[in-house]
Amino acid sequence: MLQLVDFVVRNRFFLVFVLLEVLSVWLIVRSNTYWGATYFNTSNYYVAKTLAFSNSAREYTKLDEINSDLANENARLHALVTALNQKKPVDAPAGYIPDSVFASRFTYTVAKVVDNETNKTNNVLTIDKGTAHGIKPGMGVISATGVVGKVRFCSENYSVITSILHSQFMVSSKLVRSKEIGYAKWQGKDPNLVDMIDVSKYTKIFKGDSAVTSDQNSVFPPGIMVGRVETVTVNPNQTFYNIVLRLATDFRNLSYVYVVQNQQLGEQENLKLRTVETR
């Protein structure tokens, strides 16, 4: 308190000057229409700027919550689109009516990426969902833009995903325009590019064509983007194209993913196992 009094005493002339200045400005604004209007407009401008900055700061602090809400909404939309596509496939013959349970067999769980690798030969990533959230090894993982990988290991609250940027990972893919089916496989070099193998050179391939997941896999829903055709070459001594795809998923900026559960996967795998045993 004594320090405050001492400060006022030492600066009394300056404080009186400031008070008189404020009083003078107030009197001018009150008695002069022009300066009153100018003051009103100026104060409104700065108040609006301050409020805008405050709102921006408040929105920035809520970005994680907003992103989480968007990811949940995307998961719901993914499930809806997949079910609609399966209920009425574009290339289905006349009279084909798929079972409703089959059409809605895929469900999605949103997860956040907590660790990610892109510069190794065999890359993996870690998500913040595990067995406590219904995640199991073998489930597919996608992003908002395309294929990511497959669940490899799970703990109660975390899962390790084998990325598509892994030398031992392949996903059955189909070229949209030519309808040709092959396998997308990473060669361990550029994290933006993968090869598409086993595509016959006797079919016309278009540069820029989309490669999506095919119907011939039980892990991913059909029609999920894998990438776009970057280059197409052919060796006269080979029967297959050398196709390079630019990945749809940007692994360096991956934040949220969707774990895909095929609720009929166990039934499909059991049938395959029985087929192998009876051969």
Rank of each mutant, 00 (worst) to 15 (best):
G188T: 02
S56M: 09
N270H: 11
V212N: 02
W186E: 01
A144Q: 12
V18P: 02
T231H: 06
E117W: 02
V234I: 03
D64S: 08
P222C: 06
N262M: 05
T145C: 10
N119A: 15
S218D: 15
S43R: 11
R246G: 05
N85E: 13
V199R: 00
Y256A: 08
L23H: 05
D6S: 10
V29M: 08
V219Q: 13
E156I: 09
W26Q: 14
S255H: 12
L51E: 06
R58M: 15
V176R: 13
Y60K: 05
E277R: 10
N11E: 12
V81C: 11
R105M: 08
T118I: 15
G208N: 05
P98N: 07
V124S: 14
F13V: 04
E267R: 11
I224A: 10
Y258D: 04
T118G: 12
S167C: 10
M170V: 13
E59V: 14
G266W: 06
V171D: 04
M196H: 02
Y34L: 11
M1F: 03
F169Q: 10
T50P: 02
G138D: 00
D64G: 07
F153L: 05
W26H: 13
A103Q: 01
T118W: 00
A71V: 08
H78M: 12
L20H: 01
H166T: 03
A94P: 01
N123D: 14
G138P: 00
Q216G: 09
T33E: 13
L23Q: 13
F169I: 05
T249V: 09
K49L: 13
R279V: 04
Y256L: 10
V219Y: 12
Y60I: 07
Q264L: 15
F206A: 04
S210C: 06
A144C: 07
L247Q: 08
E230Q: 13
Q86Y: 04
D99S: 12
F169E: 06
S155C: 03
F7H: 14
Y60G: 06
S255M: 07
Y96Q: 05
E269D: 15
T231K: 09
T38R: 14
M225D: 11
N32D: 12
K112R: 15
S214G: 05
L4A: 13
L23N: 13
V171L: 10
V29C: 08
K204H: 04
L19N: 07
Q187L: 07
K120Y: 12
G182A: 04
E267W: 14
N157G: 12
D209K: 00
V232W: 02
I28S: 02
V124D: 03
L70R: 11
R177E: 08
I66V: 11
I97Y: 00
N44M: 08
K272N: 13
P137N: 10
K87E: 10
C154L: 02
P191N: 11
Q216F: 15
